[in-house]
C-alpha cells in the first residue's frame, strides 16, 4: 500500500556502537558468573538482568524497534508480559507445594 514510505537508515556507526555495548555486556555476564560466585542466587538475577538488557538492545537497535511505529513496541511488550505471566503463574504452583 505505502511502498514509498520514507525509511529510516541506521548508520554503520550506530550498528558498531551497539555491537560494542553488546560485547561488553557479554564480558560482564561471564565475569559475574566466574568471579562473583559468592553472590549466590543474586548471580542468576544479574545474569537474567544482563541478558534482558542485551535482548532489549538487539531489539531496539538491530531490529529497528526504536525507529518503528509505536505499535511494534507495544506488541512486543504485550507478548513479553504475557510470557512473564505464564512463568509466574506456573512457578506459583511449585513455590507453594
Amino acid at each position: 500500500m505505502k511502498e514509498n514510505e520514507i525509511q529510516h537508515i541506521t548508520s554503520f556507526r550506530e550498528h558498531f556502537s551497539t555491537y560494542v555495548s553488546l560485547v561488553i555486556l557479554t564480558i560482564m555476564t561471564v565475569a559475574v558468573s566466574v568471579f562473583g560466585a559468592d553472590l549466590l542466587s543474586l548471580t542468576v538475577l544479574t545474569a537474567m538482568a544482563i541478558a534482558t538488557t542485551k535482548a532489549v538492545v538487539v531489539g531496539y537497535y538491530f531490529m529497528h524497534l526504536k525507529y518503528d511505529p509505536m505499535i511494534y513496541r507495544l506488541l512486543v511488550g504485550i507478548v513479553m508480559l504475557l510470557f512473564v505471566v505464564f512463568m509466574i503463574l506456573t512457578i506459583f504452583d511449585y513455590v507453594f507445594r
Binding site: S33, V44, A47, M48, A51, V58, F62
Partner: peptide, 30 residues
C-alpha cells in the same frame, strides 16, 4: 524493495536473542 532482506535480518536477530538467554542459563550457573 528491501523487505525480504529486512525480514531475514529480523529472523536472524531473533536467533541471536534466544541464544542470549540460552548462554547464561546453561553455561553460567554458578
Amino acid at each position: 524493495r528491501i523487505s525480504l532482506l529486512e525480514n531475514s535480518g529480523l529472523y536472524w536477530h531473533l536467533v541471536d536473542v534466544i541464544w542470549i538467554y540460552l548462554f547464561p542459563l546453561f553455561y553460567l550457573i554458578h
